[in-house]
Design a protein around this nucleic acid. Structure first.
Lengths: 207, 207
DNA sequence: GCATGTGAATAGATTCACAGCG
DNA sequence: CGCTGTGAATCTATTCACATGC
C-alpha cells in the first residue's frame, strides 16, 4: 500500500513525505506508518520525513520487486485469460511465462501472445524458466489436484482464485482471492443495515 | 468460509457436523468455529454438533444470501468482462444486471448476453433495478470519479478492483481486491526466504 | 519547531480449558 | 461420554504519547 502511494508521490516530484501525509494517502494511522516502516530500518529524518525515492527503493527491495518473477497461470477460463492480459502484473516485475489448461481444445491456442500449454509441460517449464509463483484459476473441483502438481513441480508460492480450500505443504506459501466471498461480505453489511432499518421502523420498540 | 464448507458437507448428505470437523475443512481452529458461530446464535447441540441444513440456512440468512442482489459492473476491460461471466457470482444470489463503460466503441456491444451501457444510463439503471452493489473494474485513474458517481447514483456497496485508494462517504461500504498486491506479498515471502538461504550459506557466520 | 522512532497502553482476535448439557 | 458455549488467558495489532534528533 505504501509502495503504491509513494509511486504517486514520486510522480508529483515531491522529494520527501511525512508519515502523516503517507498515512492519509494509504488510508491508515500515522503511528502505524511509522511503526511499519521502522521494521524495515530507520529510513526517516526527524523534522523532515522520509525521502521518497529512497523509501521507494527500500520497500521495493524488501518486497522482492527489484528482481524479475516469472509466473505461470493454470486454468485458462475467463479469469485466467483476464489475468494473463492484466497489466498490473507485468508492470511490477511479474512476467507471465506460460498458461496451462487441461482442455485439449484450448491447448495450442494463444491468449495475448502466450501459447496455452498442456499440463504435461508444467514440470519442464517450471524448471526451465525457474518459476516459483503460480496463479491457480481452475474450477474448484480441479484446484487441489493442480495445486499438488504445482508443488511437486517445484512451485513454492500459489495465488489461488478457485473458490475452495486448498492445502499445501508447510514450506509452500498460499494466498487466496475469493471473489464471491467479497460480494458476500458486502451483502452481509447491506443485509444488516436493512435489518436495523426495518427493526427501527417496527413501532414502539424503536426509540 | 463456513458456508462453503457446509455446502460441501451437505452434498455428502451428512446430517450434522462437529466444530472440529468444520474447522478442519475451513482451515481454522475448532474453538474459533464455535466462537464465530456463537455470535449468530446457539445453533449447536452438545454432544452432537451442528445440524448442517439448519446452520447453512442461518448463515445464508445472516449473510443476506436468501435474497437476490442485483449488481452492476463498471469498466468492461479484461477483468470486468471476466467477472461478468463469472459463475461464482450468479451461483449465489448475485445477479449482474448491467455493464457500463465510457468507451463509445464498447457501448452497445454485449458480453455474455449483457449489453454494455454508457455511464449516462447508470442512475436510471440503479434506480430502476434497485441496485445497491457495484463492482469497480476501471483503470486506476478513473476509479475515484466513477466511485463518486456510483455513490451519488445511490450505490451503497462497492467492490473495488482498481489498484488505487478510493474514498467514499462513511455510509458506503467499500472492499478492495488488489491483484498485484497479492503477488507482491508472495514475492515478499519468496524474497525473504532467498535472503535467509543465502545468508546461511555465506560461510563462517552461518551455524 | 517539526516529525521520527519507539516503549507503554490499549484494543482486538485467537486459543485455552473446562463447566454444562444432550 | 462427546461436543458445545464461553469466560479467562494469551497472543497480535494498533494507537498513544513523548523523548529524541535534525
Amino acid at each position: 500500500m505504501y509502495l503504491r502511494s509513494l509511486l504517486d508521490v514520486a510522480e508529483l516530484n515531491l522529494p520527501t513525505i511525512s508519515s502523516d501525509r503517507l498515512a492519509g494517502m494509504a488510508g491508515v494511522n500515522a503511528a502505524k506508518v511509522r511503526k511499519d516502516l521502522s521494521y524495515l530500518g530507520t529510513y526517516g529524518t526527524r523534522g523532515v520525513g522520509y525521502d521518497v525515492e529512497y523509501l521507494l527503493y527500500q520497500i521495493s527491495r524488501e518486497l522482492g520487486l527489484t528482481q524479475d518473477w516469472p509466473v505461470v497461470i493454470v486454468g485458462v477460463g475467463n479469469l485466467g485469460s483476464a489475468l494473463a492480459n492484466y497489466g498490473g502484473f507485468t508492470r511490477r516485475g511479474f512476467r507471465v511465462v506460460a498458461l496451462f489448461d487441461i482442455d485439449p481444445r484450448k491447448v495450442g491456442t494463444a491468449v495475448d501472445g502466450l501459447r496455452i500449454l498442456a499440463l504435461d509441460d508444467l514440470e519442464a517449464v517450471v524448471a526451465e524458466a525457474g518459476v516459483s509463483i503460480a496463479v491457480l484459476t481452475t474450477p474448484a473441483g480441479a484446484a487441489q489436484a493442480v495445486a499438488d502438481r504445482l508443488v511437486s513441480a517445484g512451485i513454492s508460492s500459489i495465488l489461488n482464485f478457485a473458490p475452495t480450500v486448498v492445502s499445501v505443504p508447510e514450506h509452500v506459501h498460499l494466498r487466496k482471492v475469493d471473489l464471491s466471498m467479497e460480494l458476500q461480505i458486502l451483502s452481509f453489511y447491506q443485509q444488516r443495515e436493512a435489518g436495523i432499518l426495518s427493526a427501527s421502523t417496527l413501532g414502539p420498540r424503536s426509540a
